[in-house]
């Protein structure tokens, strides 16, 4: 399978500089070669471990993080909100 790095990078929201495209393409090609020869298998995949199913907690209101704690890592804030670039002109 041939890798189109520009397309995959676009889907991944990454920009790869032109001078690195070739190197990434070669490395990705080697990885794809390693993973692409999977055998045909019959059956239906389930994501669930039927013997060890998940156990949900009760839907209870409990104290969680404060606004200050949640905003302390935001790159830019104003008036208790996160500031981001304009999305609508």
């Amino acid at each position: 399978m041939k890798i189109d790095i520009r397309h995959i990078a676009k889907l991944s929201k990454l920009s790869i500089p032109e001078d690195q495209i070739e190197r990434f393409e070669e490395e990705m090609q080697a990885i794809i070669q390693m993973v692409e020869n999977l055998p045909e298998i019959e059956g239906k995949a389930t994501a669930v471990d039927t013997e060890n199913t998940m156990e949900l907690r009760a839907d209870e209101v409990i104290p969680s993080a404060s606004r200050e704690d949640m905003l302390m890592n935001a790159p830019q804030t104003a008036a208790g909100c996160i500031v981001m670039p304009k999305v609508v002109e």
């Binding site: 995959i8 991944s12 929201k13 990454l14 990434f24």
Partner: peptide, 23 residues
Amino acid sequence: LYLTTRSEGFGDEVKRRIMLGTC
């Protein structure tokens, strides 16, 4: 902003795996 943040914030190994996963 997405592109610049992710391209400058992640190293090459992370980028490779994100691209493989996306692929």
